[in-house]
Simulated scan of single mutants.
Amino acid sequence: MDMIWQYSMRTLLGFGFLLLLTRILGKKQLSHMTFFTYITGIALGNIAGEMVIHKEIPVLAGITGLTLWTILTIFIEKLSLKSPWVRVILDGEPAIVIKNGRIQPKAMALAKLNMDDLSMLLRENNVFSVREVDYAILEPNGRLSVLKKQEEENPTKKDLQIPIQKRLYLPTELISDGKIVEKNLKNLQLSHEWLEQQIKQLGAQSIHEVFFAELQSDGSIFIDKKMDQ
């Protein structure tokens, strides 16, 4: 029983401290934007895991390791903001793998990218033929940015001369999982009465019948009723 209690306390402490450190490191770390942030995330998780599982490792030693790693990461990130060459060393540089519609074998070889990999990355960008591509750039985080040839691009409303209606709102959840999102309703300066009125106009008798509701950019409401209604 003492062992269970000990491991539980170590787990809670490790979890809480790791959560705190990831908040300090910021959203860039959480999104794994670069190879460096990806490796840092793995290292922090590994240190925390070792501290929790191996009782021969003092908790203080684990916390010290996590803290020092976080400080070093913040220092390197600050340094990379001021120094372009540090950014290049840590994150690498984008590689143009298709240029003016032509595949660049040397750039692909340097990026250790084969045609199967390139085809897969293109499909992730909804491009199913290399013929459609004018430029393709492999970013430092491994994602592919694609610029289609002009004749392959989708026409915009401006191209088609379609009148553009100004957005009144950013699409926002008002009801999620059957519960009103009070924060969003307050930020939009909308009332419960207004929401209930809008919902009734869409065929629901009350808010309790709605599983999801979203305010659209034009001010209208989209609702999805609960399955049992």
Rank of each mutant, 00 (worst) to 15 (best):
Q165W: 11
V181Q: 10
E182S: 11
L170I: 13
Q198F: 04
I164C: 08
V210H: 09
L185T: 01
L170A: 11
W194M: 03
S176Y: 13
K166R: 08
P163V: 04
Q165D: 13
G203A: 06
K183T: 05
I207N: 10
E196R: 03
Q205C: 13
L195M: 01
K179P: 10
K186I: 09
L170V: 07
Q189G: 13
T172N: 07
S176V: 14
P171I: 03
Q198S: 03
S176C: 13
R167Y: 15
S191I: 00
I175V: 09
V181D: 04
G203W: 08
Q201M: 10
L202T: 02
G178K: 05
I180V: 12
D177S: 10
K200A: 00
F211A: 15
E209P: 10
E196P: 11
W194P: 03
L195K: 04
Q201W: 08
L174W: 00
S206P: 12
L168C: 12
L195R: 00
L188F: 04
K183W: 14
K186T: 09
A204V: 00
F211S: 15
E193T: 04
E173P: 15
E193G: 12
G203P: 11
G203K: 07
V210G: 07
K166G: 14
G178R: 03
E193H: 11
L185K: 00
S176H: 13
L170M: 11
L170E: 08
A204P: 10
S176K: 15
Q165L: 15
P171E: 07
I180E: 02
T172I: 01
V210D: 05
Y169D: 04
L195T: 03
P163K: 02
P171V: 02
Q197K: 12
P171D: 06
H192A: 12
Q198A: 10
Q205I: 10
I207K: 09
E173V: 14
L174T: 05
Q197G: 15
